[in-house]
Amino acid sequence: MESKGTFNTAGSSVDMTRSDEESMVDGPLISADALHSAIRREFHTVPTAWHAALLSLLHVVFVVLSVCVAALCVLKLGREDVCTSVLGPVQGDSVVVFGKVGLWLLVLLFTWCVQHHHSRARCRGYLRFYRQTQGLKHLPLTVHSAGNVMLLVVMAARLSPTVHAYMLLSILALELLVALPCLLYYTVIVMRFNADRATPDVSQEEHSHNFSVSSLPTETGFRDISSLEEVVEKQADLIEYLKQHNRSLSRRLLNLSAQH
């Protein structure tokens, strides 16, 4: 009798559990189309290509104007009255230095903007693009900062006005020859990325894995330590992206459940 009572109690609890599960299943379901449209991620372009092109143009204009100012106002190879009427009491080399500081501030702002947009692209799952441009996006700021150091050394040396002007123009020309190709190459990479409109790296790897796992031979192990560190870093980026992706999907599912 006692065992039968116990059995009935257990059976009632099982029935209650089943009834709860059935009530949850019988509730309003989310349609597949609504769920697919909510989960699907739209491609977001990286707008820094136009910023890099504009910065390249400003860099070229600055160097051309600096050459003109140095030739007319420092080396005095042309009409000096033009420098006096335009610049006033300010010396020509001082104007070039002030312009150099302003250009460096623009490069600093560009680097911050690039870091912001690339971090957002990384959060959206484009880890390969983030790693490809990781060193390139900081190179213009490094070049201009090194140019500022060289300029300070030239100014502290207290050279003659002619030598000072030629050294100043040499530093500006060297910066242009190094920073401009970097900006143009970065612009090409970002424009290709925006034109491809590729899916996140996780989707690409899953798609390629489905076609290659049955046909291509696999290799176990690593050849060197550098490849192991690269794989570990990629896995860490991938895990961080999947965490953010799961949180985003959870919020969308809760919103769709509340709507229905």
Score class of each variant (00 low, 15 high):
S145K: 00
R223D: 05
Y130G: 04
Q134N: 15
V64K: 15
L169R: 04
L54W: 11
A71Y: 11
K100R: 02
Q132D: 09
V69I: 11
A38T: 15
F43P: 09
K76H: 07
F222M: 14
G11L: 13
Q115Y: 03
S226E: 15
P140E: 08
N194T: 05
L151V: 03
L151M: 11
R223E: 09
K234C: 03
T9S: 05
M191F: 09
V74Y: 00
D33H: 13
L228A: 12
A70M: 10
K234T: 06
Y185W: 06
L176D: 06
V25D: 07
R79M: 05
Q134T: 14
S145D: 04
L254Q: 15
V163S: 03
H260D: 13
T220L: 10
V101W: 04
L238C: 06
A146C: 07
V96I: 12
Q259V: 14
R223L: 12
N148R: 03
G27S: 14
H144T: 08
K234N: 03
T6K: 10
L159R: 02
S119G: 12
W112L: 04
L174K: 08
E205F: 03
E175M: 06
H260I: 12
E42G: 14
E229D: 08
I171S: 00
V74K: 05
Y185K: 13
S203C: 13
S208E: 11
P89S: 01
S248E: 06
N194M: 05
V46E: 03
H144Y: 10
E206D: 09
F7G: 00
H118A: 07
L249H: 11
R251K: 08
S248Y: 08
A173S: 10
E22N: 05
V178C: 05
G125M: 08
Q132V: 06
S66N: 11
I39E: 07
L253F: 14
F129Q: 01
V154L: 04
A156V: 01
A71D: 02
R120L: 05
E205D: 02
V14L: 13
T9L: 05
A10L: 14
Q259R: 15
D237N: 12
G88T: 02
V153H: 07
F193H: 14
D224C: 15
H117N: 12
P200A: 07
D15G: 05
R120E: 04
R41K: 14
H36R: 15
V202S: 04
W112A: 03
P140Y: 04
V178T: 13
L105G: 02
V232W: 01
L58M: 09
Q235N: 07
G5L: 10
K243V: 11
Y241M: 05
P161D: 02
T17K: 02
H116F: 10
L58W: 09
S160E: 01
L172G: 00
C182R: 04
D196A: 15
L174Q: 05
V60E: 12
E175H: 04
G102L: 13
D81K: 08
R124Q: 03
H36N: 13
Q134W: 11
S257A: 14
L55Q: 10
V153G: 06
L254G: 11
L180M: 12
S208V: 14
A52H: 06
L180S: 13
L159K: 01
I39A: 09
L254I: 15
R252F: 07
P200D: 15
S214M: 11
R158C: 01
R131S: 08
V96R: 04
T48V: 10
G147M: 07
L169H: 01
V63N: 09
